[in-house]
């Protein structure tokens, strides 16, 4: 394990993208995960088709009501997917929590992942005081981690912090960019 693995995002060949998301939405997702802990929480952040911008947070019920499994209620999912269609939106982020393990896709997550265009955001609530938040693409069974860039729209729209959470060797602890 090297702690200095990738200061530069571009150096990591597997880091093909980035999830840019408003802090207010991340806070709402974390609050949802904490509220449902120790059960897994799940939901969607929708955004305009093709924009890659998550703008509308929709917490979903975990129909499985389980500490180790989540599943959207099929009827709630149908209503939401239709609503997104009507609004020219798509699921930009699909999130769920792991409540006793790290925020990394399990084999179950990989087997079920059916939205190749979505960012799969995982939140771990196993520690009571800190959250681990990580984002992945899951396409044809291949998992690719990507940095999470949290946008502080309320503070200064030009001040963008980009970093990844968690303790993976690929962690970019803190990186400022002007873009």
């Amino acid at each position: 394990m090297t702690g200095t693995a990738s200061r530069s995002v571009s150096a990591g060949a597997r880091l093909v993208g980035v999830l840019s998301i408003d802090r207010s939405i991340v806070d709402a997702i974390v609050a949802h995960a904490r509220r449902d802990h120790p059960d897994e929480a799940c939901g969607v952040v929708a955004g305009p088709v093709g924009s890659d911008k998550p703008t509308r947070h929709i917490p979903m019920q975990n129909a499985a009501r389980s500490m180790t499994f989540y599943e959207f209620d099929s009827m709630e999912q149908l209503r939401l997917w239709r609503e997104m269609d009507d609004r020219d939106e798509e699921p930009i982020v699909i999130y769920h929590s792991h409540t006793a393990t790290e925020a990394y896709p399990s084999r179950t997550d990989i087997a079920f992942a059916g939205e190749p265009g979505a960012h799969y955001l995982l939140v771990s609530t196993r520690e009571p005081d800190t959250e681990e938040i990580r984002s992945f693409r899951i396409v044809d069974g291949v998992v690719t981690e990507e940095p999470v860039r949290i946008l502080d729209a309320g503070v200064d729209p030009h001040a963008v912090q980009s970093y990844m959470f968690g303790q993976s060797p690929a962690t970019v602890d803190y990186e400022c960019s002007g873009s």
Binding site: T68, Y70, L78, I110, E115
Partner: peptide, 20 residues
């Protein structure tokens, strides 16, 4: 007829069992 991928997953698995 509408076809949607089920949205499901979770920690269930060996790692989860070990952690628990």
């Amino acid at each position: 007829v509408t076809i949607l991928p089920a949205v499901a997953g979770g920690a269930l698995g060996f790692a989860a069992a070990a952690a628990i």
